[in-house]
Design a protein around this nucleic acid. Structure first.
Lengths: 330, 330
DNA sequence: CTGTTAGCGCTTTCAG
DNA sequence: CTGAAAGCGCTAACAG
């Protein structure tokens, strides 16, 4: 493969002249520039961006790290990130953290391949995050925290959101409300559960909490946990799910057993994913601001890169979105 | 930031020794290795992956290029790609081609930042693709073609799929079938239209084709084009859409006008995206193999990287998936 | 087992 | 306007 050296030889100029010409530096005469561009074309020259990055010691690219590239991470969130990243003239890469410590994500966090990272993944250790974050390598953490000067977290008010959801159910006359969640060590879901419990307490229902925690936070597990709930008999009048994916799995399970939502049981999710408004019945859920969160994340990373100081922690509000999966039984 | 040079100085060894130690080369004695690892820890050393890549002149990473990172590119497809890429010990990056010639995608295609690319985007010129593809940089093209020794295409049999869909409609008694598509120069949609037209011809309906081509291939445009169709009066008994996204937009438009699907009009989509089975009514559509396509794409890229020869072109079959949006009016 | 050394391909002073 | 030269941080052949 041709390099600028080859071009220099062919055009009969020095390497630096080639570099300047290729980078549109004004100080190169039109004539030599043409000559150089011609040679480049003939040699089918392709720049080696890696060499360039090494020399410049900056990549002008930001990584978005998600648990699984194949996963349903929110389109709107990515859009928010993408727009401000592009407007700054930076590149955006997405990579996944499947594979844990040997994943692409860790490589990007620890090997200076990018100038900053936005992390939406729980399977990357806090240790790695803290070790990697530097002045010249800010990290934005979504849905989790880490104690470091160069990491800022953006969370959503999960506790309040869940509280809102549970309270809705209670004001609609529900007294027997189950909560189905995955097994978790993450604060996010702990807070959601907490909101649910606080609402029960607030309305004098403390003894009545029915919390089911097991397995993953996906549709399949929402499905099987709901089946178990059904198998136990003694169906609650409403069930809250840790997220919409699980809720959708749950609705399917109810359907399979001929249990009508919301006539027989009310259901409420969390997140407001795209599917939520399409399932039958349309899912009542708690929405988090997605686009705004993405845009804020990208904005903050540039603030930090430019040396401005920022809050270490942001908490965004949630909002109840009423659809058809909750029945007023008053 | 600390480099291996600093470690060498601190540990009192040469830089090559450091490099060997850090890369777990067996020839370094346990004692020096400890010493080196210690120094690295103290200095909070972080490898510069870019320098390493430059030297090795290989990145062991593959880029997945999509039109829009925020878009609904198929999770299943990504999963297929991801699995074989990881199994080969390569990294996978996703980047978008929004921004055209100045996009991240083009940078990755033309600047040797990765060892190969899988491209699912139509806004990257064939010229760039052909210029970029080399023996050491194979490109897999999804849903389009390009004439180059180092590019292989994987398409889906769009013509046959569309034919199948149209034929279903005809055998169910439909005679007046509209086709709503975006404006296209891409062969993919041209083939879909062709399948529709061939089916009409085959069944003696050649005069009756009602093709509407305008705008984008997204939900919004499916919505507005359907509204226009409605406004014109003289509703067809069935409408085929260029893809599921447009079909979903169309269903929404019908709903808004109190036109029942499929009682008043039958609808058929293409792609079988996840949403298809959740919309009301569940969408009858033409499925393309997603996971398989992803896995094949990644598999081929490694075949090429390893110097094996492959077919230049693959065509995968489609399949009709019957749901509830088509009515038998015989 | 460890050190010396020559680059990978590019950018960017500094001199002319 | 153009060229010489240093060097980004790392790897790996070679010598010891």
């Amino acid at each position: 493969m041709a390099t600028i050296k080859d071009i220099a030889r062919m055009a009969g100029v020095s390497i630096s002249t080639v570099s300047y010409a290729l980078n549109n530096d004004t100080k190169i005469s039109k004539k030599t520039k043409e000559k150089i561009l011609d040679a480049a074309r003939q040699l089918n020259y392709q720049k080696n961006g890696i060499a360039s990055d090494l020399k410049r010691s900056s990549t002008r690219t930001i990584a978005l790290i998600v648990t699984d590239l194949a996963g349903p991470y929110y389109a709107e969130l990515v859009k928010g990130i993408q727009e401000v990243t592009l407007s700054k003239g930076y590149d955006l890469l997405a990579c996944s953290s499947v594979g844990g410590e040997t994943s692409t994500a860790v490589k990007f966090l620890t090997e200076k391949r990018v100038d900053g990272a936005i992390v939406l993944a729980h399977n990357i250790s806090e240790e790695i995050l803290i070790k990697s974050a530097r002045k010249k390598f800010p990290i934005i953490l979504l849905d989790r925290k880490a104690d470091s000067e160069h990491i800022v977290s953006i969370e959503v008010d999960n506790e309040a959101g869940s509280y809102l959801g549970a309270e809705l159910l209670i004001t609609q006359g529900h007294r027997d409300i189950a909560y189905i969640s995955g097994m978790t060590v993450s604060e996010l879901h702990y807070m959601r559960i907490h909101g649910y419990e606080r609402a029960l307490q607030k309305h004098g229902l403390e003894g009545r909490n029915r919390l089911h925690q097991f397995g993953l936070f996906n549709r399949e597990n929402g499905f099987s946990m709901t089946k178990m709930l059904i198998a136990q008999g003694n169906l609650p009048s409403a069930v809250m799910y840790a997220n919409d994916e699980m809720a959708i799995g749950g609705i399917n399970a109810f359907k399979e057993h001929g249990i009508k939502v919301p006539a027989d049981v009310s259901v409420i999710g969390f997140d407001d994913i795209e599917l939520a408004k399409y399932v039958q019945p349309a899912l009542t859920t708690i929405m988090q601001p997605k686009y705004e969160r993405g845009a804020l994340a990208a904005h903050l990373i540039f603030e930090m890169l430019e040396g401005h100081s920022t809050e270490p922690y942001y908490k965004l509000p949630t909002q109840l979105v009423l659809r058809d999966s909750v029945l007023n039984i008053n």
